[in-house]
Simulated assay, not measured.
Amino acid sequence: MSNNTVGSSGPAPGKIRGPGRPPKRTCTWCAESKTPLKYVLPTENGKKEFCSETCLSEFRQAYSKGACLHCDNVIRGNAPSSSKNFCSTYCLNKYQKKNEKRTSSPQSGNGANGTENHANNNSTGSFYDIYQAFDWNEYMKDTNSVAASQECFKQAPMPPVNDFKVGMKLEALDPRNLTSTCIATVVGVLGPRLRLRLDGSDNKNDFWRLVDAGDIHPIGHCERNDGMLQPPLGFRMNASSWPMFLLKTLNGAEMAPAKVFQPEPPTPKSNVFVVGQKLEAVDKKNPQLICCATVGAVKNDQIHVTFDGWRGAFDYWCRYDSRDIFPVGWCARAGHPLQPPGQKSATTPSRLS
């Protein structure tokens, strides 16, 4: 499975780079020249590469509002006033010339239909369509399998709306010390999920939470419940400096408003998973990824999650009410990328040892 990537980005097959530095590519969003660009977003017309999750997230939000019909890039402020479907007058003119050639062709009927479909897809601004290349129904038919029902999961039937923004602060339990409530900052947004970083910690300890998780709250929740904010495990400064650090951290910061937190869904009454059922599950070793998976075993209140097309090094046991497992089709509904079976970027042998 890939390491800190949303997709794979590498040299085209058959091309061999010569000595020296590899050529730099630019981030699709911020246009900075960096190598490598670790984050890749597949689109209907190829792939977009990014230098960070923040750039990927910002691009996704803009892309969901509509993409240029010619170059498939986001439409910014320099869009021509004559059409809202193009990022620039240059692309508008190019598209019109290309369309004129199609309509003058003997096969203009097919071309026109294809153009119309593409225009419809982009004008709706549906980012969700990008990730529907994987057909669960076809896959389950081919594998003679069935999906675990919605009732098995502690997940809302409709994925919650994510109105958080990168940079917002909130309170969260320290995942390495569940007795401590800490200040966290949103450093990434992906579908209904948040990438959080505990203030006073580093990026090596980032973790992911759903917007309807029960262990994240607005600033002030801990104090209202007679608790006290704690420094994260491995706080990089002297413990005595924590009060002043906390004061500086919160001074002038953007607090996540209470309205963006969603209520936690109810817990299923019992474990009703059955061996062989399909689901979508977080890859614990690369938690930004959600992958196609199967229930490999069931024991009391636990299920064994096995990832389709991958050796057992990534499999794990979890409670049946884990928030890291989802019903089939959740990613498509949530606008979250789904890693199909065995299609992630190449795994190094050391990861499988």
Score class of each variant (00 low, 15 high):
Thr179Glu: 13
Gln132Arg: 15
Val189Lys: 13
Asn177Ile: 02
Ile183Gln: 06
Gly191Ile: 02
Thr179Arg: 14
Ile183Val: 14
Glu138Gln: 13
Val161Phe: 10
Val187Arg: 07
Gly191Gln: 04
Lys141Asp: 10
Met168Trp: 07
Met168Gln: 13
Leu173His: 05
Pro175Asp: 04
Pro192Arg: 13
Thr179Trp: 03
Asp142His: 10
Ala172Gly: 02
Leu178Gly: 00
Leu170Asn: 02
Pro157Asp: 09
Ser149Met: 07
Gly167Tyr: 07
Asn177Gly: 02
Tyr128Ala: 11
Thr179Met: 05
Asp174Asn: 07
Ser149Trp: 01
Phe153His: 08
Pro159His: 09
Met140Ala: 04
Asn121His: 14
Glu138Arg: 15
Val166Ile: 15
Tyr128Gln: 14
Gly125Lys: 04
Glu171Gly: 09
Ala147Glu: 04
Phe134Pro: 07
Glu171Lys: 08
Asp163Asn: 14
Ile183Trp: 01
Asp135Arg: 06
Asp174Cys: 06
Ile130Gln: 13
Asn121Thr: 09
Glu171Asp: 12
Val186Ser: 03
Val189Arg: 11
Ala147Trp: 02
Ala172Val: 02
Met158Tyr: 00
Gln132Lys: 15
Val189Pro: 06
Asn121Gly: 08
Pro160Thr: 03
Lys141Thr: 09
Ile183Asn: 07
Ala119Gln: 15
Gln150Pro: 09
Pro192Cys: 07
Ser149Gly: 12
Asn122Cys: 07
Phe164Trp: 09
Lys169His: 13
Glu151Arg: 12
Phe164Asn: 05
Lys154Glu: 09
Asp174Ala: 00
Gln132Thr: 12
Phe164Lys: 01
Gly125Trp: 05
Leu173Ile: 03
Asn121Glu: 12
Asn121Gln: 14
Ser123Cys: 12
Asn121Phe: 14
Met140Arg: 10
